[in-house]
């Protein structure tokens, strides 16, 4: 299969190819032992999955009444009140930010190293593996909402973790 494409054989079996492409892939597979071998596996897998799908257990989640009850409960739940915006909130946030910056700067001077330096390497891998990282993201998202600026909990970063 080094020069052959299994995805094309798969698409052939699924009937997803145009007539021209289907004829081309079919003609190739007839003369290619690796593709014929792959086709047998693909057919077998399709057969297995179809049989497996027909053996669905009876589960409570498949009962529409349970879903209706859930939807009704959601509809009758009181909506969360919007938090009231304090006129001093913006000033308070800016003051807290300035104080935090000064504290970090001061700590860096006392320790003789830049405040942002760290010995541990960190990156996407650390973000994925570190326990409690979701709570950090939540906190960052909350902070973003408060200050109205994009910090670290951007959708791109969150999406890249999945």
């Amino acid at each position: 299969m080094s020069t052959c494409r299994e995805s094309e054989l798969d698409a052939l079996l699924a009937g997803e190819l145009s007539p021209e492409d289907a004829a081309r892939v079919h003609a190739h597979a007839e003369g290619c032992a690796a593709c014929r071998h792959a086709l047998v596996w693909l057919r077998t897998e399709r057969g297995w999955m179809a049989q497996r799908a027909r053996r669905m257990p009876s589960r409570p989640a498949l009962d529409f009444a349970a879903l209706e009850a859930r939807l009704a409960a959601k509809a009758s739940a009181p909506a969360r009140p919007e938090p009231r915006e304090s006129p001093w909130r913006g000033w308070r946030t800016m003051l807290m930010g300035a104080m935090a910056t000064m504290a970090c700067f001061g700590l860096g001077l006392v320790r003789g190293v830049p405040a942002s330096s760290t010995e541990e390497p960190w990156g996407a891998e650390v973000f994925v593996a570190a326990p409690g990282v979701e709570s950090c993201e939540d906190a960052a998202a909350a902070l973003e909402a408060r200050v109205g600026a994009c910090l670290i909990a951007t959708p791109g970063l969150v999406a890249s973790r999945h």
Binding site: A50, A53, R54, M56, S58
Partner: peptide
């Protein structure tokens, strides 16, 4: 476990 038959997707 009780099984139910379902059709193709």
């Amino acid at each position: 476990m009780k099984m139910v038959l379902v059709g193709a997707p």
